[in-house]
Computed example of a mutant assay.
Amino acid sequence: MPISTVTSDPTALTLTVVGEYGVPVARLWDAFCDPRQLERFWGPPTWPATFTRHDMVEGGRSEYVMTGPDGERARGYWTFVSVDPGRGFEVLDGFAHEDGSPDDTLPTTRMRVDLEQTATGSRFTAASSFASLAAMEDLAAMGMVEGITAALGQMDEVLADLAAFAAGRATQVALLSDTVVRVTRAIRGSVDQVWRAHHDPDLVRRWMLGPDGWTMPVCEIATVAGESYRYVWERADGRGRFGFEGELLETAAPYRSVTTEQMMGTDGPATRNEMTLTPIDGGTLITVVITYPTTELRDQILGTGMVDGMEASYLRLEESVLAAA
C-alpha cells in the first residue's frame, strides 16, 4: 500500500499524508507535472479528475473537474504559491463554480507537497493547512480524508506506467468534452529552448510544417497580448496554399500562451488554444488545450489528420532544431 500514514491534527489545523514509492523522485515529480498522469490519481476511483489547465510554475493555475458515478460534477483549482522543480510545490487548493471562478462559500486549503529520495525509492508528503477548525471539520464531513486516501492509493499503478510514458513520447490526444481537446507531447529539449522554437520565426519555419513536402512562406509571430499572428503554408511546388491567423490573448514566457486560431478566408468562429510548457525528466512536456466552438468543427479538424501532422512537426523540432541547439 503506497500511503503509509494519514495524520489529522486539529490543534495545528493540518492534515498530512505520507506515501512511499519504489521509483526515483524524478518519476514521482513527472506524475504531478503531466496532467495525463495527475488526473489518474487526483480524484477517488469513483470521482475521477480531468485537468483542463495545469500551469506548474509560481503564480500559475490548474483547473480540474471531478465527475461522480451519476454524472455529478465538482470543480476545483490550484493556485501555485511556489514551485521547486523536482522537489515539491505549494498551492492554494479551492473549489470552483461551473464557469471555473472560485467558490468562496467553500473552504480553501493551503497544500504543501514535498518529494524526497529514500533508500528504496522516494517519499511523498502532502501537508494541507486549514484556515480554521470549522473549515477543517467541514471538509472532513465532506469526506476529504477518505477521498484523498482513496485517490492517492492509485499512485502505484500510475507510477508503474511512467516508464512507458517516458519511452513512448509521441503526440497523444484526449477528448475532454464535446468541444475541448488536449494534445500532449514530450520533447527532448529545455523549456527555454522549446519556447524559443515557438517564437523565433526562423526556427518556426524549420519545423512547424506538418508532413514532409510543405514550406512556410509566411510566419508572423505575436509576442505581446493583443497582437495578431499569421502562418501560411504551401507545398514545395507552390500548390495547396492555406493559412491560419489569430490573436495572442495571454502570454507568460516561457511556460504559457493563449491564442485564438481561425483558418484564413473563413467566417466561422475561432478556436481557443492554450499551450503550456512544463519541465519533466529529460525534456519538456508540451500541453495544448484546444476549445472548439462546436463538436462538429472538432470532429472535422481531428479528421484531417491534425494529430499526425503535429507529431511530424514535433519530431522535426527535436531532430532538426533542438538537436542542433
Rank of each mutant, 00 (worst) to 15 (best):
W29T: 06
R123S: 06
V194P: 04
A140Y: 08
R230T: 12
P69A: 15
V224M: 09
S8V: 12
L106R: 13
T284Q: 01
H198Y: 15
D84M: 09
M310L: 12
T259P: 05
L139K: 06
M136T: 02
W195S: 09
W195G: 08
A186G: 08
T266S: 14
L133C: 00
D99M: 11
W78P: 04
T266L: 12
T294H: 02
S4E: 15
W207K: 01
S132V: 08
V224D: 13
L28P: 03
G305I: 06
T67Y: 00
G305L: 02
G226M: 04
C219F: 05
V25N: 03
R230Q: 12
A140E: 15
R182E: 09
R256F: 10
G238E: 07
L139Q: 02
M155D: 03
R235M: 12
E72K: 03
V91R: 05
T79N: 15
F244P: 01
D70K: 13
V173Y: 00
A167P: 07
D299K: 00
S190Q: 00
D156F: 01
V181T: 04
I301L: 05
H199Y: 14
F165A: 10
A150H: 01
A141C: 09
S320R: 07
P69D: 14
T294D: 05
V173D: 06
Q37M: 15
